[in-house]
């Protein structure tokens, strides 16, 4: 059994790759080569292409990691020959033909609904005032406020982009369920993880678990690399 040395991190909607800093620090200390995709989140195709460009230049197999919407990106890009394993961090894992849009279309009654505002000029935004509570309840208020004000607009084509050939049907996958998530209900995360046959670990954390609990996220990735 060869151990995977590369890790590629794909961020989700409304944020950029800098949120991975804590996970990056953990993994590079252990000797992993870590690359962070700065996917523009304009369209699924564009983000998949950005991810594949990073995978193309790797010297060997990688764990491909996606947070939130990044899960849809890795589900499509993960059939790349250098993607040896997938790790979903409170992420979407669409099946063939599904998009994030179809997955969140029908929230179960009583489940928290993400405070996404109606599209403006083809872009979606998170309600600034509800960002802290919905996206990052376990981060300090000041950091959450910064993230809310620095949010990256999310293209409607990214939301609508459907997965053609889900990589989790071809690769082993790991899934970290954030139990206090108010963006993607934990129950929905569990259903997607089960469908993908993922190895599941729970963490007490908000949707921003990759920022608030970098050690826990890094541990799951280490496990996926064995």
């Amino acid at each position: 059994m060869t151990t995977i040395k590369n890790v590629v991190l794909v961020h989700g909607a409304f944020v950029d790759g800098s949120g991975w800093q804590g996970v990056y620090d953990e993994l590079t200390t252990d000797g992993f080569h870590v690359r962070i995709v700065q996917n523009p989140t304009l369209s699924l195709d564009g983000d998949v292409a950005a991810t594949r460009r990073v995978l193309d230049v790797l010297d060997g197999p990688a764990v491909l990691v996606g947070h939130s919407y990044g899960g849809a990106v890795i589900s499509e890009a993960g059939t790349h020959p250098n993607a040896a394993a997938l790790a979903y961090i409170a992420a979407f894992a669409p099946d063939k033909g599904e998009s994030v849009g179809t997955l969140i279309a029908d929230p179960p009654p009583g489940a928290p609904v993400a405070p996404i505002l109606p599209p403006r000029d083809g872009f979606l935004y998170l309600d600034r005032d509800r960002f802290h509570g919905s996206f990052a309840a376990d981060l300090p208020a000041q950091l959450a406020a910064f993230m809310a004000d620095a949010q990256v607009p999310w293209g409607v084509d990214a939301l609508a982009g459907a997965v053609n050939e889900p990589a989790w049907r071809h690769r082993p996958s790991w899934y970290l369920v954030a139990t206090e998530d108010r963006m993607i209900p934990p129950a929905a995360q569990r259903v997607m993880a089960e469908r993908a046959g993922s190895f599941v670990v729970d963490a007490i954390g908000s949707h921003a678990v990759y920022v608030s609990q970098p050690a826990v996220v890094a541990e799951l990735i280490r496990q996926a690399a064995v």
Binding site: V201, D202, A203, I204, A215, V216, L220, Q223
Partner: peptide, 19 residues
């Protein structure tokens, strides 16, 4: 350890205490 070889187990990855 995560004891990945054990099946039918629910796992909780414990984090540090919040500040």
């Amino acid at each position: 350890r995560l004891l990945a070889g054990l099946e039918g187990v629910r796992r909780l990855s414990l984090g540090p205490l919040p500040v």
